[in-house]
Design a binder for these strands. Structure first.
Lengths: 190, 190
DNA sequence: CAGATCATGTAACCTGTTACATGATTTC
DNA sequence: GAAATCATGTAACAGGTTACATGATCTG
């Protein structure tokens, strides 16, 4: 379970609540991993029972009490073990490519619409990564002084950017290919 | 549900059994979508109940009877509706990048081992796509005469190849970056 | 005065994987 | 004689999403 290990990783920087962990996901690694609070809370509970975490309650009025989680020695060991363990490369799972695969059933304009929509999505994402994520890394370094860590954060961002760029190039080239076909060519090559 | 629509897409080429559908997945779109038989069989049943498919039983001795599925008009309409519907771009979900993100906890050799392993995985896949998938497309065109469709099949393969190439480039550049660091630099920039 | 932020969860549901069950025929 | 191919499934489990539940305080 990767969520478990991502949580260990963040808690290893500093003790936090589930709510704060969610913010870390949203601000730093959301572009390659994320989770909802409804998944994070029960997972933290299980990890506590497994002895990977300790919990301290900070009492609050007019808000639910803060449950601050700390990594135990067992948790740190488990994190390190997992980090060294060879990772597999999960298969792509892209419904959009199913639409392209069976795209022969669509008209030229319909498939161009699909492609342009996909292009726009990836362009937006790329822009977001270049703005927000870069900034988030900068802010994290300033806030935590984890300068060494930021080298690794930057590596993952590079891959995120490269991924979006691949899509953008493919979409643009594919749109160009299909636009270059006359309607006659497009309809009559079956 | 994309599995449903992928099944509709294949059955729209020709009526088939669940077993044969699985082979189509394994031979043509496995690199961006796949499913196990244990998921395909119940899904076909549900689709039949929804009126998207019709089933004919071919009786056999010494083997379970073949259940051959055909797309109904409602199924064809549903396929066409889905193909036109704008597709979203699902977020990446790569546990390996979590390992890199928290890579500061690893030694230089440990992280290089991760990177080289990942590089090898993607190189193998790229080689497979360039061999097997190209061949599968060629064979499908010969077997079915769906020349027009093969243009679209090729487009998805291009994206698959591009994806693997991105990983390979990133892995190689990242390995080079880290190798270029002296051990001293690597350990002492926190 | 509406919406974001802080802060916790539970329950139902959906998708997909793994394990189990059966068994003849063909190929190496 | 072992492994792949043909051909069907069921059941348990794992991971993740959506909906529901609660409610004060801060910000625009």
């Amino acid at each position: 379970m990767s969520l478990k290990h991502a949580l260990l990783g963040f808690l290893n920087y500093a003790p936090m609540t589930g709510y704060e962990l969610k913010q870390h996901f949203d601000r730093s690694i959301y572009y390659f991993w994320n989770a909802k609070l409804s998944q994070i809370y029960p997972t933290l509970n299980r990890m506590k029972e497994e002895g990977l975490l300790m919990m301290e309650v900070e009492y609050q009025e007019s808000k639910p009490n803060r449950k601050v989680y700390h990594v135990t020695d067992a948790g740190r060991e488990e994190l390190h073990r997992w980090l060294r363990e060879p990772a597999d490369a999960p298969p792509l799972r892209i419904a959009f490519l199913i639409k392209i695969f069976f795209g022969g059933k669509l008209t030229k304009e319909e498939i161009l619409a699909q492609l342009r929509h996909q292009l726009a999505l990836h362009q937006e994402r790329l822009a977001a990564y270049q703005r927000e994520v870069r900034d988030a890394i900068r802010q994290n370094v300033e806030a935590t002084g984890l300068k060494r860590e930021s080298f690794f954060w930057g590596l993952t961002l590079d891959m995120g950017i490269r991924y979006e760029e691949s899509w953008i190039e493919w979409c643009q080239e594919t749109v160009a290919k299909i636009e270059a076909m006359t309607n006659n060519m497009y309809e009559n090559n079956s």
